[in-house]
Design a binder for these strands. Structure first.
Lengths: 179, 179
DNA sequence: TTTTCCATGTAACTCGTTACATGATTTC
DNA sequence: GAAATCATGTAACGAGTTACATGGAAAA
């Protein structure tokens, strides 16, 4: 998650409803865990910065004897900034990278049956993840979130497809080697 | 790229051929750029650590009056370590995350035509990337690298598919709104 | 003769995470 | 009475990148 994306997330949430840090963090970890991860400290720091830059305004409120809240709301400048960030970020197509591919690159080193077994385990795990996304209820929080969930689903499905295809081709290879 | 994946990459390269840091870095940036990125300083530091941990041995060699090379080769322990890392990493299925999705989550904020236009731009970019991968020659450097390239291709294709589907559904939405 | 290549490394810097500190207030 | 919740923040740490330093050799 780049700084810009963090800004979009926070500004977007604050636009739909003015909020303080605790609330924002809570919402992210309870409702957005599947599509976004940002740690508390990072969120607090980012909110500070957004306020310093004038994208959001701060009002300190106190309820009863609880610790005072710093409630943020979007400024007009922030509103424009948010739209421009979203537009720019929607358009961006930074290169896809798959960390785990160092292992794939050198799978030749491992005996084929072990490779197949490992990939099967991975495929099973991915299917489980996919099932979780498929079972997830519509989010309701807006069209965008559902589309984002769809995005993950798409790639999870692609991952399963790739794994199956790869496993199959390796199995063919195995048979060819030792008939 | 996690430390383990970095280790796999370096150990794997050194296994297929003993090499010094410069050579390793050169090979990565000239031949592996599409599937791996690791900066020079990181590679040198990682090689040091691998040597310190006993996975690779060091021999200093000098050719002519050039700066001396520190040539690394895999130790038996390193060999075993590499296999175990590969196996473990092939099996791993860490959650997929798409940074750019903060923008997607809040695409409702932007006027629909602008969203569609931005996504079209992204789709065009992705298609271009996909074409590059499709045009790429077989790597030759081993089955694994080709499979890794295939992995990227798969996800690039999925990305294009998702973009097209999303754009289409947004266009339908647009027509429904203003007939 | 100037640029590029060979070859290694260090130091400073950026960035985010982990872990901790604080303290009142509901809930079990 | 203990535990979880509300609410904010700081400090230390780790990890990796950028940029720099060095200096001979080969290529342009």
């Amino acid at each position: 998650m780049t700084p810009d994306e963090r800004a979009i997330l926070l500004l977007g949430m604050i636009k739909t409803q003015r909020a303080h840090g605790y609330l924002v963090n809570d919402f992210i970890e309870k409702n957005l865990a599947r599509v976004a991860d940002m740690k508390k400290a990072t969120a607090y720091a980012t909110l500070d910065k957004l306020a310093k830059d004038g994208w959001i305004g701060v009002t300190t409120e106190q309820v009863g004897n609880r610790p005072p809240r710093k409630v943020y709301d979007l400024t007009p400048a922030g509103e424009a900034h948010l739209l421009s960030l979203i537009k720019q970020s929607l358009r961006a197509a930074e290169p896809l990278r798959f960390g785990s591919d160092a292992a794939v690159m050198f799978l030749d080193e491992l005996p084929l049956p072990e490779v197949i077994e490992a990939l099967r385990a991975r495929a099973a795990e991915r299917r489980a993840q996919l099932a979780m996304y498929e079972a997830a209820p519509k989010h309701g929080m807006g069209l965008g979130v559902d589309i984002a969930l769809d995005h993950v689903r798409f790639h999870l499905a692609a991952e399963v497809g790739w794994l199956d295809a790869t496993i199959q081709s390796l199995e063919k290879e195995l048979l060819a080697r030792a008939p």
